[in-house]
């Protein structure tokens, strides 16, 4: 095939005619990109839901609803209540248990309640942050993987160039084009992953702040209830 006369630079052609390591890199990057987009959407939905549930719970809680009734409802359907509701439920349950035991000091009751709430908080935070490390990895590594594919492809292209007498750009151009596809794919995988990672860590931080504030405020309310008696 005379490269100067007919050059099929279609995407498919370039990908199919790349050397095997470059193709492997491309497949790896495609899988990484698919998974990172999957997690991006997964996290998007999960965080939206968490925010919505937290909003509604806070509205209800600070709206002066009956705490006992709320506890009953949340305990009945824990998986449909939000993260904050579950923290509330864990804390309130521990509080009730400790209250029922005789001769407990205020400090013991409050410490136990706080511990229970913190444990639930950690678990919920862990659930929210799941998959984020994958996004971080894809975001930071896939450009390098793509670059590796590109460097490899260009190496091959230049090695091929060394065996011809008359070196023209047309002889390396297809090789470089196919190699650069690897970089393009790496960036395509990395950019959304980085954006998603940053956005979601920020969202999770804000949620965590709200939960921690709630924990403190709820502790105060419970403590007030003990001492006011």
């Amino acid at each position: 095939m005379n490269p100067a006369i007919d050059q099929d630079l279609s995407l498919l052609h370039l990908v199919l005619h790349a050397s095997v390591p470059v193709q492997l890199v491309m497949v790896l990057l495609l899988v990484a990109s698919l998974m990172s987009w999957w997690f991006i959407f997964l996290k998007l939905f999960a965080l939206k839901r968490a925010q919505r549930l937290t909003d509604s719970f806070e509205r209800e809680f600070w709206g002066g609803a009956d705490v006992n009734a709320m506890y009953q409802r949340v305990a009945a359907e824990r998986d449909r209540a939000g993260e904050m509701a579950r923290i509330f439920e864990a804390g309130f349950r521990e509080f009730m248990k400790l209250r029922r035991q005789p001769a407990q000091t205020v400090n013991v009751i409050m410490d136990g309640t706080r511990r229970a709430m913190r444990a639930t908080f950690q678990r919920e935070l862990d659930g929210l942050e799941s998959h984020l490390s994958f996004l971080a990895t894809v975001g930071s590594v896939s450009p390098y993987v793509g670059l590796f594919g590109t460097v490899w492809g260009i190496m091959i292209a230049f090695m091929g160039l060394s065996s011809v007498a008359q070196a023209t750009l047309a002889q390396v151009a297809p090789g470089i084009a196919e190699a650069l596809i690897a970089t393009a794919m790496g960036l395509f995988a990395a950019i959304p992953a980085v954006v998603g990672y940053n956005r979601y860590t920020h969202d999770i931080d804000r949620l965590a702040n709200r939960m921690e504030s709630f924990m403190e405020e709820f502790s105060n309310i419970l403590q007030r209830q003990i001492t006011s008696k």
Partner: peptide, 14 residues
Amino acid sequence: APFVARPATGLAAG
């Protein structure tokens, strides 16, 4: 028993 949220399968996300 602590509540452990089941990770969503997320077919829609896929």
